[in-house]
Simulated assay, not measured.
Amino acid sequence: MSNIKKNIEEIEEDIKKHSIYPEKVKFIAVTKYVKPEVMDEILECNVKVFGENKAQVIKEKYENYITRDKKDIEWHFIGNLQKNKVKYIAPFVKLIHSVNKLSLAQEIDKRAEQNNRVIDVLLEINIAGEESKEGYELENLYEDLPEMLKLKNINIIGLMTMAPFVDDEPLVRGVFRRLREIKDELNNKYFEGKLTELSMGMTNDYKIALEEGATLIRVGRKIYE
Rank of each mutant, 00 (worst) to 15 (best):
M1H: 13
I4E: 10
K6E: 14
N7A: 09
I8K: 00
E10C: 10
E13K: 15
D14L: 00
D14R: 12
D14W: 02
I15M: 04
K16I: 02
K16W: 02
H18N: 14
S19M: 09
I20Y: 00
P22S: 10
V25L: 08
K26Q: 12
F27D: 03
F27M: 15
I28R: 01
A29R: 04
A29Y: 06
T31G: 01
T31V: 12
K32P: 02
Y33K: 13
V34N: 03
K35F: 10
E37H: 13
E37S: 13
E37L: 13
V38C: 01
L43E: 01
L43K: 02
E44L: 08
C45I: 09
C45A: 10
V47H: 00
F50N: 08
G51P: 05
E52M: 06
N53G: 11
I58Q: 08
E60K: 11
Y62H: 15
Y65N: 06
I66R: 14
D72V: 05
I73V: 11
E74P: 00
H76R: 10
G79C: 06
G79M: 07
G79P: 03
N80G: 09
L81I: 09
K83H: 00
K85H: 06
V86L: 03
V86C: 04
Y88A: 07
L95D: 02
V99L: 07
L102A: 00
S103G: 05
L104W: 08
Q106P: 08
Q106F: 09
E107D: 03
K110C: 03
A112W: 02
A112F: 06
R117V: 04
V118R: 07
L123W: 06
I127Y: 04
I127A: 06
I127G: 06
E130A: 12
E130F: 12
E131T: 12
E131C: 00
E131K: 14
E134S: 15
E137R: 14
L138E: 13
E139P: 02
E139M: 05
N140M: 11
E143P: 00
K150S: 12
K150P: 00
L151H: 09
K152Y: 07
I156T: 06
I157F: 04
L159R: 06
L159E: 01
A163S: 12
F165K: 10
D167S: 14
R173Q: 13
R177N: 14
R178V: 10
R180D: 14
I182E: 05
L186Y: 02
N188Q: 15
E192A: 13
E192G: 01
G193A: 09
K194G: 07
L195I: 07
M200A: 13
M200G: 12
T203I: 07
Y206C: 04
A209D: 08
A214F: 02
A214T: 05
A214P: 00
T215I: 11
I217W: 02
V219R: 05
R221W: 05
K222Y: 14
I223T: 11
I223M: 07
Y224D: 09
Y224G: 04
E225N: 13
